[in-house]
Every structure is written in structure tokens, then in C-alpha cells.
């Protein structure tokens, strides 16, 4: 158990390091996220000017939400572009057969790598835009260290849910064999249902009640609410963990079916 823990730890560190080598790309990403953050914040300010307390947020909270979205955008690969991209290309080329015979668990292996990537993106691409927002705009940030700690846990859970969603999408490659279509679906669903456009609690009620129940809500909306004390911790964690477990379990089912497929086809 200790041995395998160390293995996945190494894989995660590898994921972190791989992204850490792209310094220029990271700097470019920070710049782009900051620009988008500024644009989004101004539109939110106008919107909340018109409708104070929209979705239960005040202006400072809406601003915080906007910057959090930019900070978590690459971290949670909200429009795709994490481990699933590589996994899909391995499925397409057939290299996946090698992975299946590796004496490690396929899902955990990729989860570890993607978590490493997420952590790097959070530190490398997330912190600066968020700090920029906090310096130049009024944000609603908690004073207590306990809330920040609770927020970190929520972000970690969000990373797992995010991976679980994209893992399912990647496995769909076994049956669909069209990565472009899958990537586009991941992107559309991710951007819209995560609340990148508008906080989910500011959606009109009929749509809002649906998207707030979907797993994408665990990515941005829930961590934001935890950070700003807008939700009970245990409800938030239960929601995130529930989706994480359900989706990872579904992933294992799909993975087993896919493995049978590969074995039947002879690799």
C-alpha cells in the first residue's frame, strides 16, 4: 500500500513538473486569464449594479467569483486540455494497450498525473490573476484561516470531480473514435455548466436548479460558496464527494468495458 502510494505520488510530481517546464506558456496564460478577468468583472459590476444581491451575492462577492473562475480555469481544465487529451491520443493510436498491462491502476495513474497538473496550474496560473483581482478590485475574502483551509479542501475535491468528468469523456474515445467532437462537448458543457459565464446561482431559476445539481457545479460554484461562506461546509463537501465517487465509479465501469473491448480486439 505504501509502495503504491509512492508510485502515484511520483506520477503526480511528474505531472506537476511537466507543466512547470512551459514557463513562457504559463506566463502567457496568466496574462490572458487576467485580461479575461478584467472584462468579466466589469460586466458583473454592471449586472450587479442593476440587480444588487443577484443570486444572493453582493458586488464584492460577484467580483470574487469572477476572479476565482479565472484562477481555476486552467486548474480544473474547465474547457478541457488536461490529462484527457493525452489519454485520448493514446486510445486513438492504440498505445493504451500498453497502459492496460501496466501493473498500476489505470484510473489512479491518470488521476495522479492530472492532480499534479492541476496543482501546478493553480500555483502557476491561478494565484497571480486572483491576486491581481484582489489588489485592483474590491473582493469578499475571508479573514479566518479556517475558511481558507476549508476552501483548499473544496478546490482539491473540485480537482477530483473535474478529472472524473474528463476521464469519462476520454474513455468515450473507445466507442466514438472522434476526439474533436468529444473535446468540443467537454468544452461546451464545462464552460456553460461550471458557471464560467455567470455564477450558477444567478441563473434563472428553472435552468439554475438543474445546473446546480449537475457535477460541474462542484467545480467552481461550490468552492466559491465555501470561500465566501455562502454554504454549509458539509453540504458542499457531501455534494462534491458524492459526485466524485459516483463519476469515478462510473469511470471504472466504463474502463472495464473498454478493457474487454481492447482484449477482444487483440490490443
Amino acid at each position: 500500500m505504501v509502495g503504491s502510494g509512492r508510485l502515484y505520488g511520483t506520477v503526480a510530481v511528474g505531472g506537476f513538473r511537466r507543466y512547470a517546464t512551459y514557463r513562457a506558456a504559463t506566463a502567457a496564460g496568466v496574462f490572458t486569464n487576467t485580461v479575461f478577468g478584467v472584462i468579466l468583472v466589469y460586466t458583473y459590476l454592471a449586472l450587479w449594479d442593476e440587480r444588487p444581491r443577484l443570486g444572493g451575492y453582493d458586488q464584492a462577492q460577484a467580483v470574487t467569483y469572477a476572479w476565482l473562475g479565472q484562477a481555476l480555469y486552467a486548474t480544473l481544465a474547465i474547457q478541457g486540455g488536461g490529462a484527457e487529451k493525452e489519454l485520448m491520443s493514446r486510445i486513438r493510436t492504440g498505445e493504451i494497450a500498453v497502459d492496460l498491462y501496466r501493473p498500476a491502476d489505470l484510473q489512479l495513474w491518470w488521476l495522479a498525473g492530472d492532480l499534479g497538473r492541476s496543482v501546478f496550474q493553480l500555483l502557476g496560473r491561478g494565484v497571480i490573476p486572483f491576486t491581481f483581482g484582489a489588489v485592483f478590485f474590491t473582493m469578499a475574502l475571508p479573514r479566518s484561516a479556517a475558511t481558507w483551509a476549508a476552501f483548499v479542501v473544496a478546490v482539491a475535491l473540485a480537482m477530483v470531480v473535474s478529472f472524473a468528468i474528463r476521464y469519462l469523456a476520454a474513455l468515450a474515445m473507445f466507442w466514438l473514435m472522434d476526439d474533436r467532437g468529444i473535446n468540443q462537448t467537454v468544452m461546451i458543457a464545462g464552460v456553460f455548466c461550471s458557471g464560467m459565464v455567470l455564477p450558477l446561482n444567478a441563473f434563472p431559476e428553472e435552468i439554475g436548479s438543474v445546473v446546480r445539481a449537475l457535477p460541474w457545479a462542484a467545480q467552481l460554484q461550490v468552492p466559491a460558496d465555501v470561500l465566501m461562506g455562502e454554504t454549509s461546509l458539509w453540504t458542499a463537501y457531501a455534494f462534491q464527494a458524492g459526485w466524485a465517487v459516483a463519476l469515478l465509479a462510473l469511470g471504472r465501469l466504463l474502463q472495464a468495458a473498454a478493457t474487454r473491448r481492447v482484449v477482444v480486439q487483440g490490443g
Binding site: L54, T185, F192, V197, P204
Partner: peptide
């Protein structure tokens, strides 16, 4: 897919206007 992505772009604006005039 491309059409859907761009449509979604405008849906964001429609969502905002569902809350304000």
C-alpha cells in the same frame, strides 16, 4: 459543435438579460 460553442456565447448574454432589463 462550432455553431453550438458560439451560440453559447450569446446565451450568456441572454442569461444576464433574464435578470435585468
Amino acid at each position: 459543435g462550432n455553431l453550438l460553442i458560439t451560440v453559447l456565447d450569446f446565451v450568456g448574454i441572454l442569461l444576464m438579460f433574464s435578470q435585468v432589463d
